[in-house]
Design a protein around this nucleic acid. Structure first.
Lengths: 336, 336
DNA sequence: ATGAAAGCGCTAACAG
DNA sequence: CTGTTAGCGCTTTCAT
């Protein structure tokens, strides 16, 4: 592996010239012949700067860490995808961590964070791994942005238009003539969960309709929780004819749960969900959703880190593109 | 950010002692009092070694890069998940790259590879980004392992028991009394695609049945290709009563394609697919699959890199756990 | 039982 | 126009 020194020697110049030439230093004045020669040698020796030395010197690594709950969840995968693309566009690389594997013992990624070896950290909120990473990051003043769940730290918070999206979903059901609408919520206590429920509640209220607690169930964001949750919901509120599901993966679980109960969708109950992903079009009935800018959220997080905005108390909502309904088959006009 | 030097000064010892103490050097003999004092200071100053300096010195980074086509594909997501977990267990961190974002121009991840700044590289085969990464890796002698598709480089190849799995799938259909069985294959020309088709062919042959080219369609690994592919297949071979789909995502597309054609599954045609993921249980009809060790493949790749086996011409097949049928509703006994 | 010092490869300030 | 030099923070050998 060729070093700067070797290149310099071979070209008969000093390392400084080569370094500045290669990094495109404007103030460097070098003869065309010398420049040519150096470049040729760089090529011939297949020289590439040593990254460790470079980041040691520059005190930055162009490495960004992203910690998510679980890549296999299609909703989270889309966030990862957006973040990765943005990182690439910003000429940074993405370190990926999944919550589960970070919980235990020593971990290189957590160490990197703790050592301030990364330029920024993006955390999908809530969870022990997250907290641990966050604690380390805060101590080392690593630029951190939280997705969807705030903390008391100096980190930025990026959220989705949760309340709007839930209102849009509710409104869709309302427009179809439904009046008794339940809400299958995500995990209790989290900012985005509350916002979505608030969207449902306020839209119901705006139409002078009830949104009692009996028509609300806190579930989660996976298939099993959706399946179980919807059964509790139907049990508590058998009168409902429409459901706003706060997470599309859970909604697919809910479709199955309703199937278990022999309730026809959308014949007896309409279901609309927040978030969208390709497979939502391939379940039966195809799931009507409200698409939210997930990839954009991942990208925005990375861009925020790469920018130089002060992250403390910085709170952005990603509203472009705006949430929009993807009309499919799981919602229908209310009967009678 | 505290440095070694600061810790050493505060403890009134040299940096060497602190360094060796912290890295658990067995040959170091320190007085218990000194040791205590140093440790306390490390704690108080919240010292963590500078990673860049460390990797500069040690010439290794405990960073492993993984390049996949697309994290949003649930099959690939599972590979990523397995790799991430293994990396964490090996105290390494995972750099994730998606093919699409690596195609264009300069890219940090590709640079890191080209600079030999990572300890290893795992590549999901076939694609321009892959080739570029590979070329760089080869030049810098980065330990590389290919997933599913071989190259002529000095990299290891990890594959799945593709042929077996396809044979198991075919056999399942055969056992249900199907005799005219088609194959919806993945992208043409790739090792694993060929192996799966070979599994179908050989199992048919073993039972003295035909597997003509008219009953084979090369499609791909996503929803749209599966949907389109199955229509071509039915068009070419309307007589088939069973389909071995070489990829479960494509198979879900195929289910939709068969729906478009108003062909009942499994009433008229049974479908069994290779690979499994949670949502396969939630489509209609729930997809019968042959599960393959995807996460294990990702993990094996990372473990291979972390180990010290010679990777040249190293070819392993991940056969634990062995492929096994997940029986659901998309396959049924042949009529008559 | 502990310290001094040489580098790892690079960049940037300064000096010609 | 180009070279010298002083570190960045760490590990490790060799002295003491």
């Amino acid at each position: 592996m060729a070093t700067l020194k070797e290149v310099a020697k071979a070209a008969g110049v000093s390392t400084a010239v080569v370094s500045r030439l290669l990094s495109g230093d404007k103030t460097l004045r070098v003869g065309a012949a010398t420049r040519e020669r150096i470049l040729r040698i760089v090529e011939a020796l297949d020289y590439t700067p040593n990254i460790a030395a470079q980041s040691l010197r520059l005190a930055r690594s162009r490495l960004i860490a992203l910690i998510v709950h679980n890549v296999s969840n299609p909703v989270y995968a889309e966030i990862v995808s957006g973040a990765e693309a943005a990182a690439a566009a910003r000429d940074s690389a993405l370190l990926l961590g999944e919550a589960a594997s970070l919980e235990t013992g020593s971990n290189r990624l957590i160490d990197l964070i703790g050592a301030g070896a990364i330029d920024g950290l993006v955390l999908q909120g809530a969870g022990a791994a997250t907290d641990r990473a966050l604690a380390k990051a805060v101590r080392k003043r690593v630029r951190t942005v939280m997705l969807q769940v705030e903390t008391d730290a100096d980190s930025a918070l990026i959220s989705l238009p949760d309340q709007d999206a839930a209102a849009i979903a509710t409104d869709h059901l309302l427009a179809l003539g439904h009046e008794r609408i339940g809400c299958l919520a995500t995990a209790p206590g989290l900012r985005f969960s509350l916002a979505r429920v608030a969207g449902w509640r306020s839209e119901m209220a705006r139409h002078g309709l009830e949104a009692p607690d009996s028509r609300l169930v806190w579930a989660g964001s996976d298939l099993a929780l959706g399946r179980g949750g919807v059964k509790r919901l139907i049990d508590q509120a058998p009168e409902i004819t429409g459901i706003v599901a706060c997470n599309a993966v859970a909604a697919i679980g809910a479709l199955a749960g309703l199937g278990d109960l022999e309730i026809d969708v959308p014949g007896e109950v309409s279901v609309i969900a927040l978030h969208d992903f390709p497979l939502a079009d391939y379940v039966t009935p195809a799931l009507t959703t409200v698409r939210m800018p997930l990839a954009e959220m991942g990208a925005a997080a990375v861009n925020l880190i790469c920018g130089d905005a002060d992250l403390a108390k910085h709170h952005v909502t990603i509203d472009r593109p705006a949430p929009r309904i993807i009309l499919r088959r799981s919602t229908a006009r209310a009967r009678g």
